[in-house]
Design a protein around this nucleic acid. Structure first.
Lengths: 324, 324
DNA sequence: AAACTGAAGGAAATCGATTGCCTGCACGCT
DNA sequence: AGCGTGCAGGCAATCGATTTCCTTCAGTTT
């Protein structure tokens, strides 16, 4: 490489990185030679000298990828501009695996780490006194000093309920996931409080169950047989909402005329295939991934941000709550 | 580090890597010191010397992750044992992005590259004369010399049809995705040929459409109004199958008594939530990922395998074809 | 013409771990 | 006592790029 351009390796480095003072002709000659040979600097050698690897690790516990893929895409967007690459590690809900990956990432001298998961519930910090900055995305850390980027699920639930209220609904039910699941309780509480602020309350006690369509169908049947006059259901997930939609359909209720329906997650597979398509709350996972990556970059550059960062949700209206 | 154990850096290296001849006590002392300091060797420095990075790149065009996540998990399984890490790059169906990622991976001196995508159709090789081995997973390369690990979709279709035949069905229809989609035509042809081998033919011409539930519903309605006596439908995807299930249900047909149903992909979200749960063909994506990684490792170690490797499918029976 | 200035680019140290080579020392043999 | 044998561990070269320092030389100034 250096030989082809007839200069020393030091000069090559200066030419390609725009350092030092070189004759424009020399610079051009080196660049041409590099082009011709398809020369790309060895990242290992470079990082050895600079102390940076332009690499970040992403540790996820979400095997399915439904949440972590959008987060990854968002993060890649923000990092790609800084020419950084991402090591994706799937810890599969296993603490041993997680610690193994953590050590691996540290031995690779990543510049920073993003930790994500399937649930929004706060988790124990991945490690203490780590030599690199860590940002939690989607999930948060129990250490209030750690930087976390999380969706404001209460905000999402509020938007859902207010949307239903704006559509003139007053007898609203809530069907959601397991009571021990953080997201379920946060969303349920926010829904209850939003109604309370209007002097209303839920048309039935919150129905806690599973994050499945089967539970949505079952819960809807229970609602139909016990609660009267329910004119809207806010569901803790799109899967539950779709199950509810099917049960209501089977029972001959029209959506949205008789009962309006709002889901949560805005998962395309569910909202589009449901009959009718579902109005849903979008947590903007890509945006969360992007924010997390930006905060990580800031921390790497010496401007760390501490504490949890809440990001608002969006309501995506579809036929299941169509007004008119 | 070296100071704490009172030895030279060379000795530390030998102690931790089990090389050279050292006194057992010294070795132990060094290991303890390393433990105490949480010392892990700098991967960049090591790779500079050995020429290997113990890193592979995975370039995918499957933004959604439904196919690439299982592939990644399988690959991680096979690579993790060799202590290798994976750079995941999402090219998002963009050639420019793909080439950019390719260069990035090369500059990071990955030991090898796995290329995956959303469709099984053969694609142009990602690059010619690359300095590292490349294995295609799920998709294949148009260069017959490239190593590809792909699902044997024809085998899957055959199993589906034979399963229906074994259940005593004789008037079998096939609803699938777009005709220009490789998977759709391969599966349709294999289904037709399997029937032909038994002296039978499809109960209706292949219905090509989209990979969506909506198309499944629509096609099922068409079948109901035009074809008579259809007692089974083999669908090109689980989404289509679920749409068919809903339409049949709406029309009062019992599954599997009146019509048996087989899907393709064995996508848990669809097969479990469908009423009844769907019998489906599993392409064993994790296995494909694992195989691809193993073949890549072999190539890295100097034993390259050329040409496409077909992997058989599995039929997962569920209620939609329950016999009896 | 001598001295000065500054641009251009080469020489060599550096990053951290690995490894071949070599030395020093203890022990055993004659 | 003298010499050989072999283990333990230090020294220094090496990987490839970056960067500091320094040399060289052309052009300018007095």
């Amino acid at each position: 490489m250096a030989a082809l351009a007839g200069v020393s390796t030091g000069t090559v480095s200066k030419a390609l990185n725009g350092r030092g003072s070189l004759h424009p002709d020399t610079r051009r000659r080196v660049q041409q030679a590099a082009e011709q040979l398809g020369f790309v600097a060895n990242a290992a050698a470079r990082s050895l000298h600079t102390g940076r690897t332009y690499t970040v690790g992403m540790i996820t516990t979400d095997t399915i990828g439904r949440f972590s893929i959008p987060l990854l895409i968002g993060a890649e967007d923000a990092l790609g501009a800084g020419r950084m690459s991402v090591f994706l590690c799937d810890a599969r809900d296993d603490v041993i695996r997680e610690q193994y990956y953590l050590r691996t990432l540290l031995s690779r001298n990543v510049d920073g780490i993003i930790v994500t998961g399937r649930r929004t519930q706060a988790r124990a910090p991945i490690g203490a006194g780590l030599p690199v900055p860590v940002v939690y995305a989607f999930i948060s850390s129990t250490d209030p000093d750690d930087c976390s980027v999380v969706p404001d699920e209460a905000d999402g639930a509020r938007r859902a309920v207010q949307h239903l209220l704006a559509a003139g609904r007053r007898r609203i039910a809530h069907i959601t996931g397991p009571e021990h699941h953080h997201s379920a309780t946060v969303r349920a509480r926010a829904a209850t409080e939003t109604l309370a602020a209007e002097g209303l309350s839920l048309a039935a006690p919150v129905l806690y169950g599973e994050w499945s369509e089967a539970w949505g169908r079952q819960a809807a049947d229970m609602l139909l047989s016990t609660a009267t006059g329910v004119d809207a259901v806010f569901c803790g997930s799109d899967q539950i909402a779709r199950g509810v939609a099917e049960a209501l359909r089977d029972a001959g209720r029209d959506i949205p005329r008789d009962v309006a329906l709002v889901g949560f997650d805005n998962w395309d597979v569910m909202v589009d295939a449901s009959r009718p398509p579902l109005t849903s709350i979008d947590m903007d996972l890509e945006g969360i991934g992007r924010s997390a990556a930006e905060l990580l970059l800031a921390a790497i550059n010496g401007d760390p941000v501490h504490g949890p960062q809440m990001r608002p949700c969006r309501l995506i209206p579809r036929a299941s709550t169509a007004m008119g």
